[in-house]
């Protein structure tokens, strides 16, 4: 399998704090990789680096061999990177449909004058956009179907909002999908649905997926590989079992195991 995303030696500081430290990360095509770590480990920062909110001070980020450093954010989306957000960032006052249609901007090409004159090319593109939006929303079955499509996004329930965010992210026709805590705030049933969903995204959609997640059930259920981060440093990588039992990972989440001497005191 070829490497779709490659981070090598990425380093970033916020003021005096080193948030990401010589990070190497490889995600191969069609893989699902989970990024785990305690809060503040820098996981969302990694997403921000990949999508272009920040540029790394050192190191390189490559998508399909092509360096993304210095490429402005909206161009990266066109190249195939898309994401959801840890705190939802839907376009709340747009309808469900419009949220998804808006995301198709980067791969449509009609100019303004073509929109004004409603040229055949533009009309065809609009039809395609609408069809694509339908398709992406249909991925979620009945949840985002029917009348709900014309409702403003703020009227959706929390779980539906998360789903809409994923639908919107897929509408940019990405190759690499970054999901930031997709199961946050969900009850066990919804969590189970999300786990299945992510698998389907990879199988049916053919996306390569990098997931940040705290819920270990989800991580266990979906991951081909798991990468663990703590204080901006990669501390473990491998299958779920390997990483979950890794001492440094346990220490990062739970603290040092007390030794017998400590217990005796």
């Amino acid at each position: 399998m070829t490497a779709l995303l490659e981070l090598s030696g990425v380093t970033l500081h916020f003021g005096g704090l080193k948030v990401i430290s010589e990070l190497d990360l490889v995600v191969s095509e069609n893989e699902i990789v989970s990024l785990i770590g305690p809060n503040g480990a820098g996981k969302t920062t990694v997403f921000n680096l990949i999508t272009g909110v920040y540029d790394p001070e050192e190191g390189d980020i490559r998508l399909d061999g092509r360096s993304l450093v210095g490429v402005v954010a909206h161009k990266r989306t066109k190249l195939g990177v898309s994401r959801t957000f840890q705190t939802l960032r839907l376009f709340l006052n747009l309808t469900v449909e419009e949220n998804v249609m808006a995301a198709t901007y980067c791969h449509t090409r009609s100019h303004v004058w073509q929109s004004i004159l409603r040229t055949p090319f533009q009309r065809r593109e609009e039809r395609d956009v609408r069809a694509l939006a339908d398709d992406k929303l249909a991925f979620f079955g009945d949840r985002l179907a029917g009348y709900r499509r014309r409702q403003p996004a703020y009227s959706l329930s929390y779980a539906n909002r998360r789903r809409l965010e994923i639908a919107r992210a897929t509408a940019t026709k990405p190759r690499l999908l970054l999901l930031d805590e997709p199961a946050a705030g969900m009850n066990p049933v919804e969590t189970h649905e999300i786990t299945e969903l992510i698998g389907r995204l990879r199988d049916e959609g053919g996306y390569t997926i990098l997931v940040i997640e705290h819920d270990m059930h989800v991580v266990e259920g979906i991951s081909d590989r798991v990468v663990a981060l703590d204080h901006g440093v990669k501390i473990a990588e491998g299958s779920f079992e390997t990483v979950a039992t890794n001492e440094r990972v346990v220490e990062a989440y739970l603290g040092l195991r007390a030794t017998e001497e400590d217990a005796a005191r």
Binding site: V53, H74, R89, T172
Partner: peptide, 12 residues
């Protein structure tokens, strides 16, 4: 609605 989200979803 959300300038940053729009930017990150491909809108210039």
């Amino acid at each position: 609605e959300d300038q940053m989200a729009a930017q990150l979803l491909g809108m210039p």
